[in-house]
Design a protein around this nucleic acid. Sequence first.
RNA 1: GGCAGGUUGCCCGAGUGGCCAAAGGGAGCGGACUGUAAAUCCGUCGGCUCAGCCUACGUUGGUUCGAAUCCAACACCUGCCA
Length: 424
Amino acid sequence: MSEHILDELTWRGLIAQSTDLDALRGDLESAPLTLYAGFDPTAPSLHAGHLVPLLALRRFQLAGHRPIVLAGGATGLIGDPRDVGERTLHSADLVAEWTDRIRDQLSRFVDFDDSPTGALVENNANWTADMPVTEFLRDVGKHFTVNVMLGRETIKRRLEGEGISYTEFSYMLLQANDYLQLHRRHGCRLQLGGSDQWGNIVAGVDLVRRVEGAQAHAITLPLVTDSEGRKFGKSTGGGSLWLDPTMTSPYAWFQYFVNTADADAGRYLRMFTFLSDEEIRALEQETADRPQLRSAQRRLAEELTTLVHGAEETRRVIAASQALFGRGELRDLDEATLNAAMAEVPTGAVPLAEQPTIVDLLVASGVVPSKAAARRTVNEGGAYVNNAKIGDEEWRPGEADLLHGRWLVVRRGKRHTAGVEVVR
RNA sequence: GGCAGGUUGCCCGAGUGGCCAAAGGGAGCGGACUGUAAAUCCGUCGGCUCAGCCUACGUUGGUUCGAAUCCAACACCUGCCA
């Protein structure tokens, strides 16, 4: 018998809060348990932070339980209250489109089959969208006291600040009802979610108990932050790390994880990968002994890129990373390797006839957002062409600079590399 | 519906007629150090056809030689009252 799923979650640091774990343990041991986690379509793609609950569902599935991934087609129309303030509502069409997109993404992380542990995909719009208001207020609303709802941290903060709309205030009831519906339809008895979801989740636990007289369980997973306490996945220049390869390229995704701080690597390996405790400890030891090898970071990047983008794509981004970050001369790369690397990084094109300067090249490659930023980069000493620093704004590439007659490898700072194709 | 206060750059926040593309902080970005790490220090941080010009301080209009700053209307937010 392998390790108990709850013990695994514990050593991986994946349990932030929970209802009675002993009771849950008993239920997990007696039979396959059905559990769920919900994901709201707040953008056209899931991002790296969503992987924690998603992979947790998979961990349960591998341990012999049945996961339900819930796409929040209805809750996404309302918006979970945040501390920062009221959300802007998105149109129903847009939310529906996003729901479809994230449902496809969600489906990739669990296995579907006819066995008792085969996963299910649900959409809460199925039971929420057409529910009459009176039914909602009588059957769901009656079980909640506003007094308790006002006690929730986010609500308290919002009341102290700019206030909160009735719409967002109601969110908790919708999520609680989701749990009830999934309990009725599929016997779902465990909900996972981020620790910011605790209030919503226990509201569901309470509702199931009151309406069905059944004991439902809850586990929240820690909100992933780096060692500085910053929200995970946000430190790449402001943007999020999206799962959608057209929004965050596999190369950028891989690079993000390669750059993980030493202090975070082990923790991330535990939370984001399926590596064993022993393997992770070995990687941590390696990082402590020979930090410059970045073994833990590389493994983390490899695992996550494979998980999200597949083994083939991972092979390509590793090759591209080696070509561009390697000690070797870019000139020595053979044409096929160079072309392959250029296919992974952002590229732009510029006509030779325009006699582009370094500023034009930086802009064309996309490593800077504007000419002003390009000039700044040059003056700050952060501009490179083919790994050679360019300090003059007026510098222009010559025929001899073109790699294989067409490419210039443009770089901003240490790690923002892109290609510019010079067209004749 | 009434009264009061508010709306500034990615975020927070100063600025009450010219010296304001707008103090300060944070984030971000670049450099040095190193290891494509952290910490630290330094620099930078609207755009462009760049010693000039264009956009920008909720929106629109007005006063003025000149407005983020004054006036009016409108929108939104907060609080108190109804």
